[in-house]
Amino acid sequence: MANKFLEISKVGIEFPTANGPFTALKDVDFSINEGEFVSIIGHSGCGKSTVLNIIAGLYQATYGGVILEGKEVNAPGPDRAVVFQSHALMPWLTVYDNVALGVEKVFKGQKTKAEMKSWVEHNLALVKMDHAMRKMPHEISGGMKQRVGIARCLAMQPKVMLMDEPFGALDALTRANLQDSVMEIQKELNTTVVLITHDVDEAVLMSDKIVMMSNGPAAKVGELLEVDLPRPRERVALSKNEQFNYYRQQVLSFLYEKKGVVDFNSAKQQSDKQLKAKQQDSNNDGDETIADKAS
C-alpha cells in the first residue's frame, strides 16, 4: 500500500459553538485505492457527510488532512466533483447547460467548442439522459435530475467522484435503477467513488470497501469491511447469496449492536471486553460460514 490513491489522514474537525468548540470528527483515518468504490456508512448525524465535505474541500479539517495522489488538497476543485443529495441543478439552466457549466470551465483551452458539445452529450448519454437535453430541471423527475447531477460530475472527469447520499431522496424502484446505472458506469470508467449512505443494502451491493463510522460527537472510523463479491453484481441473485448476507449482517451488527458510542475511548474499552467475550461465540459462527462455503 505504498502509493495510496486517496488518503484521509487523521482528520479531525471542530465547529465553533456558543459553548466552545464542538468536535464532530476525530482521527478519521482510512485510504482508498484507485478505481475503488468505497461507501461510508453510519447513523445520521455521525458526521459522514462532513467527511465527504472535507474530502471535497468544502470544509477545512481542523486536524490532519486529505492527500490525493501524494498531494494535499484543501480547497474544492473539479478533480473531486460532488453529486449532491438535493441534485443541486441550477433551475434556470437546461439539462445540457447544467452539465456544460462544469465542462466549459474544466476543459477551457483543452477542448474546442464542438468537442465540448459532444463531450456533454456523451456524458448525458452515459446516464441515459440524452433525450432530455433541452428540458429544464423542473420538467424532469427526481431520478432524472439525479442522473443529470451524476452526468455533471462525470463530465468534469474527476479523479474521485464524491456522492453525498445521492439516492436518499428517491423512491425504492428509481433508487435501484440508478444504483445499477452507477455501478455500470463505474465499472466502465473505473472511476474512484466515495459514497455516503445510511442504507446497508446499498453499501454492500455497491462497494468494494465499507467504512463504518461510530456515532458522534468525535466520530471516527469504527470498522472497515472489504466486500469481496464478484462484479457485475445483480441484486436479486445477491439477495440469496450467503456471503452477501454475511457482509450485510456485519454492517447491521456494527450499526445496531455497537451503536451510541458517545465517548469513544471509554466505550471502546467497554465494548472491547464485550467483544472478546462475543468473539469466542462469533468465531464459532464465522467458522461455520467458512465451512458452509467450503462445502
Partner: peptide
C-alpha cells in the same frame, strides 16, 4: 442562495 448551488460553483471553481 441555496448552499448546494454555491458548493457546485466552488467545486467547478467558477
Amino acid at each position: 442562495v441555496d448552499k448546494d448551488l454555491l458548493n457546485v460553483s466552488r467545486v467547478i471553481q467558477l
